[in-house]
Design a protein around this nucleic acid. Structure first.
Lengths: 217, 217
DNA sequence: GTCTATACATGGATAGAC
DNA sequence: GTCTATCCATGTATAGAC
C-alpha cells in the first residue's frame, strides 16, 4: 500500500480540497495572526470544521503544523516571485522599477506572509532552520537582480559596485516594513498606511529610492 | 497616607532598584523575547527573584504589565533619540549622515526594542493605542529631519520635494529590518548579519542609500 | 480517516497569612 | 509589601470507538 492509499471514495464533494490542505490553510492564517504561541489548536480545528484529533492525526503536533504552515507560506511567496518575467525588451531602469514595484505590491497583498516571517523572527528562526529546502527560496530573485544590474552596468546607467544581495535587502526592507510596522507607524504618525493615496505615494517613494541607490555614478 | 507610603526602611540594599522597576525590566526582556502570548508570568517572577503575587500587586494583570513594558520600551527609545545633537556646525549632508547612522546603530544596539515593536504589530497595535502619550514620541525626530532637509534645500544640495515623514519611514525601515529579520535573512542567504564586517558594510549602504534619496536634483 | 471524551500539564489570577 | 498555597480555566495531546 503506497502513499496514495486513498483507494476509493475520491470525494467529489464541493469543498473537496483535502482535509490536510484545509487544515494547513486555516493554520497559516491563524499562526500569521497570532504567532506560534498565540495560535490555538482548538481555534484551527473549529475554523476548519474539524476536530483537534484530525490535526494531530495529520500533523503530529502544534509545532509540526507550524513548520508546515511556515514552509507553505514561503513556497507561495516563491511561486509568485518566480512568475515575474522581467528581462526581454525592458531597459535596465524599467526592469528594476518593475522588480521593486512587484516586491512592494507582493508584500502589501500578502500581509499573512509578512506576519509569518515576523513571527518566525520572534522565534529567532528556530523553526525555519528545520526547513533546509527554503535556503534556495530567494536565489532566483537574486539571480534576476544580478542580471538586471549587470545589464545596467554594461549600459553605463548603473553603478558597478552594487552588491545584489545588499540591494535585495534594501528592497525587501522597504517593502516589508510598510506592512510589518503598519500599526505602530500609523498610530504614531497618524498617517493611515492603508489609505490608497498614502500607499501609492509610498510605493513611488520606495521605487525611487532604490533607483537612486543604483544609478550611476 | 499618600502614594509615598513606604514610610521607613528606605532600603539601602545593594540591589535597591525598586521592586516595580525590577519587575518591569525583566518583563521588558521577557515580552520582547517571546511576545505577549509567549511570555510567562511565572518566568518573569522567577527571573525577578520574586513571586507572581507581587506582579499582580504592582501591575494588576499580564496585559497591564505588557502595556507598561511597551511604554517603557518606547520611552527609552525617545531618550536616546532626544540626546542626539546634530545641528551646529555640520553641513546638511554630514548632519543627515549622522542621523541615519545613529538610527541604524540604535536599532542594532537595542534588539529588545525592535522585538517589542514587532510583537505589538503582531498584536495589530491593540495595546499601543492605549498609550496616547506615545503619539508624540517621534515628533522631535521628525522636526530634526525637517530642519536638516530645509537647510539642505536652502544650500541647494537636497531636493525640495522630500517629505520628512516619508524619509523618516525609509530610515526606520532600513534600520529596523536589519535587526527584525536578522534570523530569517541570515538563514536564507547564509550571510550572518551579526558579523562585524557584514554589519559595517550594511551600515554604509544604508547611509548611502538615504543620502542618494535626498540629494539634488 | 474521523469522531467524542478525557487525561494531564500549564498558566493566569487570587486568598489570606505575615 | 511580600510571601505560600491554591483555585480554576485553558490548552496540548491522546485513547478508543466507529
Amino acid at each position: 500500500m503506497t502513499k496514495a492509499s486513498r483507494s476509493k471514495t475520491a470525494p467529489a464533494k464541493g469543498d473537496e480540497e483535502g482535509t490536510r490542505a484545509r487544515i494547513l490553510n486555516v493554520a497559516l492564517q491563524e499562526f500569521s495572526r497570532l504567532g506560534l504561541s498565540g495560535a490555538r489548536i482548538d481555534a484551527i480545528a473549529a475554523e476548519s470544521g474539524l476536530n483537534k484529533a484530525m490535526i494531530y492525526y495529520h500533523f503530529g503536533s502544534k509545532e509540526q503544523l507550524y513548520v508546515a504552515a511556515l514552509k507553505e507560506s514561503y513556497q507561495r511567496f516563491r511561486e509568485i516571485e518566480g512568475a515575474l518575467e522581467v528581462d526581454g525588451a525592458l531597459e535596465p531602469e524599467q526592469a528594476l522599477r518593475k522588480l521593486v514595484g512587484a516586491s512592494f505590491d507582493f508584500h502589501a497583498a500578502h500581509p499573512e506572509f509578512v506576519r509569518m516571517v515576523m513571527g518566525e523572527n520572534i522565534n529567532q528562526g528556530e523553526y525555519i532552520s528545520k526547513i533546509p529546502e527554503l535556503r534556495a527560496i530567494n536565489h532566483s530573485a537574486i539571480a534576476l537582480l544580478e542580471h538586471v544590474c549587470q545589464r545596467g552596468v554594461a549600459e553605463g546607467v548603473f553603478r558597478a559596485d552594487v552588491d545584489p544581495v545588499d540591494l535585495h535587502m534594501s528592497i525587501s526592507a522597504l517593502s516589508f516594513y510598510n506592512v510589518s510596522n503598519r500599526h505602530t507607524f500609523s498610530f504614531i504618525f497618524g498617517r493611515d498606511l492603508g489609505a490608497a493615496d498614502v500607499h501609492a505615494a509610498r510605493r513611488a517613494s520606495v521605487v525611487d529610492t532604490i533607483l537612486r541607490a543604483v544609478r550611476a555614478p
